[in-house]
Nucleic acid binder design. Structure first.
Length: 382
DNA sequence: AAATCGGGGTT
DNA sequence: AACCCAGATTT
């Protein structure tokens, strides 16, 4: 059983461990078993200068809630398109979104773009090294600031991500839900107490790497873990039950009625609003509604042509001809189960209302960021 | 404190 | 189908 220490009346209880031995075991494992990644320095003291802090900023933005394997091709293409922080700062936001297309959480791309501009305007083009300065950048929270400070600049800043939370929950047998604010506070206090003055970047990456390769959510390979003799969760017999998390809400069922309106070999497209889902991205004209109670179709997606025609006329000034079903599929996001009902129509008459949409040839779409399901809809047009 | 914001990999 | 992922921001 790990003992606990309390420093002062309001101090959090932090498991008492042999921090030196723990760091040594973890770093030795990391030197042997780490994956080589384009944004990662080779392990070793004084490795910080090997990383371009701009690369660190880009990779950490992409890695938020996204697995390493998914990020790899995006990172390569992104750095190729925007090799320096100034190149990114000078870029058009639509082009940044286009490079981010398919990666999800698109606010990250817009924040990263804005962060690059702030690095240029307020930090003379140098990604800051200290956590308080990094925290001023949009899209950079406590984790990302600590990651950049420690990995790219060698600062002894702590980090807690999903991997670290799982490793700590097992290592110290933390029974309370790790997504509860007070437990998060405890995890950060532990990380702060453990991060070493030398090689903090390697140490932080080693914690995450252990979580990704050994201390996995399901079927952790405890027999190969460098911390197996220090793990309270393993000593209790069942580390896989940790970490405990609070239950999540079920996604809401909605319908997106998509109308592909064609005229003279072009299709009508609209840009989504600057806030909310898929902000600032483009799509075929789409009418969103609750599943089963959509204003224009029933639960079986039997569409009321007159209602759809009236909607198109009111919104774009365009009157469609006969509507023809083209495709019907579902798209899953974290908070929604979206049924996409795609119809096609020819536009016989009407003038496009200003600032409501654009007529685009499909081969122009390379320049426009589209959500994945809208790409799917476009790909199924006749 | 809770909700929002994507898409894909794993099991 | 459920859970997770090198989280941040808004409400």
């Amino acid at each position: 059983m790990p003992e606990t220490t309390a420093e002062g009346p309001h101090a959090l209880s932090i498991p008492a461990v042999n921090a030196t031995a723990l760091r040594r075991a973890l770093l030795a494992w990391y030197r042997r078993h780490h994956r080589k990644l384009p944004w990662r320095p080779a392990p070793g003291v004084g490795n910080a200068a090997q990383v371009d802090p701009y690369h660190s900023l880009v990779s950490e933005a992409m890695l938020q809630q996204t697995q390493v394997a998914t990020v790899l091709p995006y990172f390569q293409r992104f750095i190729e398109a925007f090799p320096t922080v100034r190149a990114l700062a000078d870029a058009d936001e639509q082009r940044v979104l286009r490079m981010w297309q398919g990666l999800g959480y698109y606010r990250r791309a817009r924040n990263l773009h804005a962060a690059a501009q702030r690095v240029v305007s307020e930090f003379d083009g140098e990604v800051p090294a200290e956590v308080p300065a990094l925290l001023k950048l949009p899209g950079v929270g406590r984790y990302t600031a600590g990651a950049i400070a420690s990995i790219a600049h060698g600062r002894p800043a702590p980090i807690v991500d999903g991997n670290v939370a799982r490793v700590f929950a097992r290592l110290f047998n933390l029974q309370d839900p790790v997504d509860r604010p007070d437990v998060q506070k405890q995890l950060w206090a532990i990380a702060e107490a453990l991060v070493p003055a030398r090689s903090p970047g390697d140490f932080n990456q080693a914690l995450m790497e252990l979580g990704a390769l050994v201390c996995t959510p399901k079927s952790p390979t405890c027999l190969t873990c460098p911390l197996r003799y220090r793990c309270a969760g393993l000593a209790q017999g069942d580390p896989e039950r940790l970490p405990v998390k609070r239950p999540k809400k079920k996604p809401k069922a909605v319908t997106h009625l998509v109308v592909a309106v064609r005229r003279n070999g072009r299709y009508l497209f609209e840009q989504r609003p600057a806030t909310g889902l898929w902000s600032n991205m483009w799509q075929l004209p789409t009418w969103e509604g609750d599943d089963a109670t959509h204003p224009a179709c029933d639960a079986a997606a039997v569409v009321d042509d007159l209602v759809v025609g009236a909607w198109l006329a009111e919104r774009f000034g365009i009157t469609p001809g006969k509507l023809t079903p083209a495709h019907d599929f579902t798209h899953q996001t974290t908070h929604r189960t979206i049924r996409f009902v795609v119809l096609t129509a020819n536009a016989n008459n009407g003038r496009l209302r200003p600032n409501t949409g654009r007529w685009l040839k499909l081969d122009q779409l390379d320049e426009f960021p589209l959500p994945n399901p809208q790409r799917t809809a476009v790909n199924h047009l006749p």
